[in-house]
């Protein structure tokens, strides 16, 4: 039997968990991004080699994940600001969360071609 159960929180708790997870992912991206950009001062050829690996389909999928994380973190961040500064925010937090999820889905569909188009042509020909 499990060692104590998970707290069964609702939308508010899970949006907070997702906000934390996406925040940490974005931090790691920025960490790598600062490193690879700094590389251009060390060796421009190595920088070109590193950036060339970013054009592979696998990295394109990771980039799509990055777009997902940033979009959720940004949109939910607006919701958290509304909860804190809009007097009716706490009462409408669930509706605002589902709005965030809706806008996120629309933007994720919109991001399919710009982010994954290159990888698609690479894999299946143009």
């Amino acid at each position: 039997m499990p060692a104590g159960t998970l707290y069964r929180g609702r939308e508010g708790m899970w949006s907070w968990v997702a906000h934390r997870v996406t925040g940490v992912l974005i931090f790691f991206f920025l960490f790598v991004h600062v490193l690879d950009t700094a590389l251009v001062r060390v060796s421009p050829e190595d920088y070109d080699n590193v950036v060339a690996t970013y054009k592979t389909p696998l990295v394109a999928v990771l980039e799509y994940g990055l777009v997902a994380a940033i979009l959720f973190h940004a949109l939910n961040g607006l919701r958290v600001i509304a909860v804190d500064f809009w007097s009716k925010g706490p009462r409408y937090q669930k509706q605002m969360l589902w709005t965030v999820v809706g806008v996120w889905v629309v933007l994720m569909i919109g991001a399919i071609y710009p982010v994954l188009g290159h990888a698609y042509r690479e894999l299946f020909g143009s």
Partner: peptide
């Protein structure tokens, strides 16, 4: 407070 709303629920 991180506005998780667990308290309200």
């Amino acid at each position: 407070c991180r506005t998780t709303f667990n308290c309200t629920d």
